[in-house]
Design a protein around this nucleic acid. Structure first.
Lengths: 204, 204
DNA sequence: GTCTATATGTCGATAGAC
DNA sequence: GTCTATCGACATATAGAC
């Protein structure tokens, strides 16, 4: 029962590196070191192996991001971490990349874990942003749902720009620009009361 | 000399719909209605046909975007148009999609037109943003280059979110959120002088 | 459960008639 | 310049021994 695990691990890596359509069973076999027929013993076909690998990739990414955002702490600090933590700009996103694979985007079963992952991140981001708006740390009247989509798009689009330029600069710039704008939206002469409330929450 | 044009047109469509790696010479032949050997008369192989098709797709997109941004007019209005004009959220970007195709991203010759297109859009966006900062229509001290990367990433990442959700909503939300933040960054009690100057420019 | 051997179709490219 | 016919290689999957 070890082959199954090695097959999923190899497929997960290859789907990140090359996508689903461009990964062949032969490459999976070679990287996993597993014999030819074994893949078809554990999975009906390439698609089902890909589904298992995709769910694994989602499960790899989600805890760190969701954990970061739902942990106790100052909302602006959490957003800062979200927008400045090191990410593999030139490799792209294990999950987001799948949306550009025609065989994945056209297959509801394969797209479902991708959609679920983005939906979970969106809820966590929106909650943090809502808290920041209510605290007065972001401009009044800003829509947390819109901003959450904006920040997720910034990350995903940043990968596109970085790969096009073969340079992580645009990825970091886009994220820094988002952070600049969030900070610039704050009411100008900062209300001391809001700052106090925030600091208190961090000690809960 | 009509076959060449039909081959490029068919390849351009297919690369938008499916990407480069996932498009086969057979599909190109069927869609273009051209005989089998003709592709190899006009092009050394699939890669060179793809390069011609890719350059055509870049040339299709660039004039509209660059024209919009370099036209005379109020910077904030141009940014508003850039962030609200109708775009095919569920189809994705003809140019940006190519960065997720492993055969394109790994081939400098194929990636070059993509990089050039993004670089041109970036310059045009940064110029508009710089003008808006200098006008006082955006927060003082904001970096136009960062913001230009942010806006391009918003569009590109918006496509990713929309395809994942199979819903254009996140794409529109992300763009609207960016516009909200740009507007919220403006100095609070608006300086009448800047507004006047802006209005005058629109009548030039 | 894992392996070797093999089947069937398609991919990307070429040969050569018209 | 355009076509039909075909090539060698690989993709996906199956058969069946161990």
């Amino acid at each position: 029962m070890e082959s199954r695990e090695r097959l999923v691990a190899a497929m997960s890596e290859l789907m990140w590196e090359r996508g689903y359509a461009a990964t062949s069973p032969r490459e999976v076999r070679e990287r996993s070191g597993v014999g030819q027929g074994s893949m078809y013993h554990h999975f009906p076909g390439k698609r089902e192996l890909a589904l298992a690998a995709l769910e694994r990739n989602c499960a790899d990414l989600l805890p760190a991001t969701e954990g970061l955002l739902t942990a106790p702490g100052d909302p602006m600090e959490k957003l800062t971490t979200y927008l400045t933590r090191p990410l593999p700009a030139l490799k792209g996103c294990k999950v987001g990349r799948m949306t550009q694979d025609p065989l994945v985007a056209g297959d509801p079963g394969l797209l479902a874990p991708v959609a679920a992952t983005f939906a979970t991140v969106h809820r966590a981001l929106a909650a943090v942003l809502r808290e920041a708006v209510e605290n007065g740390q972001l401009g009044p009247g800003l829509d947390p749902d819109r901003l959450a989509h904006l920040l997720a798009a910034t990350i995903q689009g940043g990968y596109v720009l970085a790969i096009a330029a073969q340079d992580p600069g645009p990825f970091d710039d886009a994220r820094a620009g988002a952070l600049d704008l969030l900070r610039a939206s704050a009411p100008h002469r900062e209300p001391a009361a809001a700052r106090l409330a925030t600091t208190q929450e961090r000690n809960d």
